[in-house]
């Protein structure tokens, strides 16, 4: 069978130990939550790893709790836990939905929220065997100098194929990042949208010594509606070909603003501000205009393995349907 290359394994049970391992640059450790993204990538030789840092035993990464106006989710929660958690379903239903749509039941039992946010970018020219990529002659992300998605392109445009990232960005979530420095734990917190860079070879703005330990999402008030929608060819197992989240802020019955977050375009989700739509009624024409906005501003690339032109055509339909589902009865009546 396809074999993993040789590497060491460390299984810390305390965050400080995990961070120390990461800080030890000699170790070349990679954090491993559920391993459902990392291990296939390592098996395929597209990711190298000198040491797997098993995070499962680190208690500080677990738990889902209300902290004031926020819901805090440890990065080590599995996607199944996130999808099934009552607090998440109440406070962040679009996140629960996104988590419930990731891959397959087994993968949701294994994969962690942190892992899904730090998912490696995907591309039809990368997620292949070592043999395949060598036959191709490599690419920007894989010992080559040519981009096959955008001929002549200088930057890797592999797609972040996370389902939870668009949803959490729509919730204005921030991520808590920790590292071991100066004999202590240093933490910083950044908006999730700013975690991502446009370079598909290093799209997660984490130093190799840093670990994503948790997510903090403000629990939206009654005037905010957030939804998520995924499309893939198959209803299970597949990565998304379209993953969109919509945040709608309301002023009474009218839109006041919000954002549309579109995933699976390139290395980072596209965030479109909806201030310009303030004052619009929650009616089908508004939904259509949101779809048009997505169509005008987003151009799916032939990076993930599906017809890019079709993905572009489909995107506005998915956005419109997502909007209509958030409008609820108001749209149906108009």
């Amino acid at each position: 069978m396809l074999r993993l290359p040789v590497f060491d394994v460390a299984a810390p049970d305390k965050l400080t130990d995990a961070l120390r391992s990461l800080a030890d640059s000699q170790a070349g450790a990679r954090p491993l939550g559920g391993g459902t993204d990392l291990l296939p990538n390592v098996k395929l030789g597209q990711t190298r790893m000198a040491m797997a840092l098993l995070l499962r035993g680190v208690g500080e990464l677990r738990g889902i709790e209300r902290r004031g106006d926020n819901l805090w989710l440890g990065a080590g929660n599995t996607l199944a836990q996130v999808a099934q958690d009552e607090q998440v379903r109440d406070a962040l239903p679009a996140l629960a939905h996104a988590a419930s749509r990731v891959a397959s039941p087994q993968i949701r039992n294994m994969a962690t929220l942190g892992g899904n946010l730090c998912l490696d970018t995907r591309c039809r020219y990368i997620n292949q065997s070592e043999f395949w990529r060598q036959a191709l002659g490599g690419c920007l992300k894989s010992h080559g100098s040519e981009c096959h998605v955008v001929p002549g392109g200088q930057g890797c445009v592999a797609a972040l194929s996370s389902d939870t990232a668009p949803a959490l960005i729509a919730y204005d979530a921030t991520v808590e990042i920790a590292s071991w420095r100066d004999e202590g734990v240093q933490t910083r917190e950044v908006p999730l949208a700013e975690l991502y860079d446009s370079d598909g070879t290093r799209h997660v703005r984490l130093e190799s010594t840093e670990l994503l330990v948790g997510v903090r999402a403000p629990v939206p008030g009654l005037n905010v509606r957030v939804g998520h929608r995924k499309w893939a060819v198959r209803k299970s197992i597949d990565f998304p070909l379209i993953s969109v989240a919509l945040r709608l802020e309301l002023d009474g019955a009218l839109a006041a603003g919000g954002k549309l977050v579109v995933g699976v375009l390139g290395p980072r989700p596209r965030v479109l501000d909806l201030k310009a739509f303030a004052g619009r009624a929650l009616a089908p024409d508004f939904a259509r205009d949101l779809g048009q906005l997505a169509f005008d501003r987003c151009r799916p690339l032939p990076n993930v393995p599906y017809d890019a032109e079709y993905r572009r055509e489909r995107l506005p339909v998915e956005v419109r349907r997502l909007a209509l589902s958030l409008f609820g009865d108001q749209a149906a009546q108009s």
Partner: peptide, 26 residues
């Protein structure tokens, strides 16, 4: 070979898990 088919599914602490992409040490 890599978690796409489910033929390797075992229950790990009672939960369906893909043993082909689970490290033995896990």
């Amino acid at each position: 070979d890599k978690g796409d088919c489910g033929a390797c599914t075992v229950l790990l602490d009672g939960l369906p898990t893909l043993s082909c992409i689970t490290l033995a040490l896990s």
